[in-house]
Design a binder for these strands. Sequence first.
DNA 1: GCCAACGTTGGC
DNA 2: GCCAACGTTGGC
Length: 319
Amino acid sequence: MPPKKSTTAAAASETAASSRPRRATAAPASAPAPALATKKRAAPKPADKETAKKSKKAAPKATTTDDVPKAEPTTGAVVEESKAAPRKRGRHPKGGETTKAAVHEEAAEAQLEDELLDSAAGAEVAAAEEKCELPSALLTSTSGSNYWLLKAEQEDRNETAHNGTVINTRFTIDDLRDNNLATGKPELWDGVRNHVAANNMRAMRKGELAFFYASGGKQGRSPGIVGVVEIVSEAEWDLTTRDPGAYGYVSKEKAGTREKWVVVGVEFRRKFDVPVSLRTLQEHKEGRLSGMQLFRQTRLSVAKVTANEWRFIMEELVG
DNA sequence: GCCAACGTTGGC
DNA sequence: GCCAACGTTGGC
């Protein structure tokens, strides 16, 4: 994360650029999300898990790129802030449902919600998950849309927020699904503090799909792509830059001024039965996946995936 | 503007 | 724990 998510900058402490993102917070109310949510709980923000606040309005959503701040890629000055990105994490509230509509109706939603609330039992979760997933046929666009790859840390790692709160930066695809279900809102992918990653986020359009990449190979895990998420809301200002409960970069600008960093809203779409490991991806590093930004800019938390790369991975590598 | 030192990411 | 990649910092 973070956020960068991937990255760092986060907090003050961070510095690097990459970014890690993080995860995110649930979308603020204003986010255009599916509308179901009734409750808002917030998820924590990158920084926060604890602090969540949320409700504020979200920044203006930028629908056009003009609205969004542009990254300042190269200029130095602007960049001072950036540092790394934080990742966020969220907590999981409980509540609503998330997926896109077509799939669910209210009754079903209510039922799902109840099931989730009642138990975390595997069976229920599995059932809910199944209902949230999109058919494989819908996971590859036939149009010219872009695809993306969002990294999140799958291992426990603590960061200290500005207000002293200790935040676990771990954020898994299960957390994303659970947060979506609980809040009925998309997860805001915040904490990204790298300009290349942020520019990728500004280029994301509603309806585009992204791989959820779990980084971190310790604790017996393997890094790799674990599922698919959908971009459900376009770039908006990342309000975590003003959140004392967040870690990482904090805006020095006056409230109301434009922020440089942005978030996009994402929703769970599918968790692969078997992740496509980094090792497997690397087997095609000199072949079909030779141009992947994942390999060319190894530490970038938000990377672009071409249509050909997407199809190859979905059709040939996803088990 | 150059570049060495340094910090972070993240795979191994 | 090691270390490669890579971004930032900051002296000059």
